Amino acid sequence: MRTEAFDAMATGVWELAAAVWQEIELLLWKPPTEWFSVNAFYTSAGLRNWYVNFERPTCRTTEGFDTFDLTVDLVVDPDLTGWQWKDEDEYAHVRRLGIITDSHSDIRVPGGRDPITD
């Protein structure tokens, strides 16, 4: 389903849809000029994990705030002892489609490689 959404996004024709965040509480820290946010995901049992979301800097709009998710993320253990990349395949797909280009991102996954050019 997400791949289809990226394919539609690449055409430039898409619509914003309303959605409701469910089941997990989120604490988000987003420096407005940075290309990432740091998120803490909580369940009823406590901190589930940290999450580094790579995204464009935030821009204010008439509706609120706008940003653009760069697809690939880091999921970090609650105690900060380990981490793993998330959605490398989706990142490679949006790079192939040209939705994310070198001018948008300098993300290399994992071990410093670019999933498209390396």
Rank of each mutant, 00 (worst) to 15 (best):
Q22C: 10
G12F: 04
P110N: 10
M1C: 00
Q22D: 11
F65K: 08
P78K: 15
S44C: 10
A10K: 07
I100G: 06
G12Q: 09
M9F: 03
T62D: 15
G46F: 06
P32E: 15
R2F: 05
T43P: 07
E88W: 01
E23L: 06
D66V: 05
V76M: 00
N39I: 14
L80G: 07
I24N: 09
E88I: 11
F65R: 08
L26Q: 11
T33Y: 06
I116C: 07
F41L: 14
W83Y: 15
L74Q: 03
E90G: 10
F65Y: 12
L28Y: 00
D114T: 07
G46E: 08
S103G: 06
Y51T: 10
V76G: 03
D87V: 07
F36N: 07
T71P: 01
V76S: 03
R96H: 01
P78R: 14
F68G: 02
D77P: 00
T58N: 03
I116Y: 11
D87S: 13
S37P: 12
I107Q: 06
W35H: 13
A18I: 14
F65H: 09
V38P: 11
V38H: 14
L28E: 12
D118H: 08
A17I: 15
P32F: 10
W14N: 12
D106F: 02
P57G: 05
N39C: 12
L27Q: 05
E88M: 02
V94Q: 08
W29M: 13
D87G: 13
Y42R: 09
V76I: 15
F68C: 04
D87A: 12
E63P: 01
T3P: 00
D73C: 02
A92W: 04
E90K: 02
R56D: 04
N39F: 03
L80I: 12
D118G: 13
P110S: 13
L74N: 01
A40Y: 02
R60D: 08
A10F: 04
P32H: 14
C59V: 12
W35M: 07
D73S: 00
L16Y: 03
Y91T: 00
R108E: 04
N49V: 08
A17M: 14
D114S: 10
W35D: 11
G46D: 06
R95H: 07
D102C: 00
A19F: 12
D7P: 08
L97W: 04
K86C: 05
L74F: 05
E23C: 07
Y42F: 15
N49Q: 13
E25I: 02
T11V: 05
D114I: 06
Q84K: 15
F65V: 11
F41Y: 13
T33E: 14
H93Y: 05
L97G: 10
F36L: 13
W14V: 08
Y91N: 02
S103D: 13
W83H: 13
D106V: 08
T62Q: 12
I100E: 06
V72P: 02
A92V: 09
